[in-house]
């Protein structure tokens, strides 16, 4: 294995671990839910992304075979992270009464989708 590739894999592993740690630190330290929501997204995109690129480079250099599995995981995580973050934000808006009062007006006839769904509350 070339020293250059070895250094690249080591650097990518360290970058990935650093961003995972930053994401968890943001989750533990930020003051409210909406701000906490954006900490772990760094861990999802940059942290896991760098680690998976590291493993792709490593296995391509060691075995000489290019593997597509890591790209599958990256693609799946990139597709699902916004969906789960959106669902969490909707659940938070529905549950936190203090948050509802701070929402700006939508400017249209219909209100916020989470609160104005046409179903009675607590159904």
């Amino acid at each position: 294995m070339y020293p250059f590739l070895e250094a690249l894999v080591a650097a990518l592993i360290l970058i990935g671990a650093f961003f995972l740690l930053v994401g968890a630190l943001g989750l533990a330290r930020l003051p409210d839910m909406m701000r906490r929501l954006h900490g772990p997204t760094k861990a999802t995109t940059l942290g896991i992304g760098a680690l998976l690129i590291a493993s792709m480079v490593y296995f391509a250099a060691v075995r000489g075979s290019f593997s597509i599995h890591e790209l599958l995981i990256t693609l799946f995580l990139f597709l699902t992270a916004p969906v789960s973050a959106h669902m969490l934000a909707k659940a938070h808006i529905l549950r936190a009464r203090a948050e509802r009062d701070r929402l700006p007006a939508t400017g249209t006839a219909t209100g916020w989708a989470t609160l104005d769904s046409g179903h009675p509350k607590g159904e």
Partner: peptide
Amino acid sequence: DATDRVLALDTLVI
């Protein structure tokens, strides 16, 4: 709140 715990579980999976 429960949403914080769900977010923590999501991060644990990552």
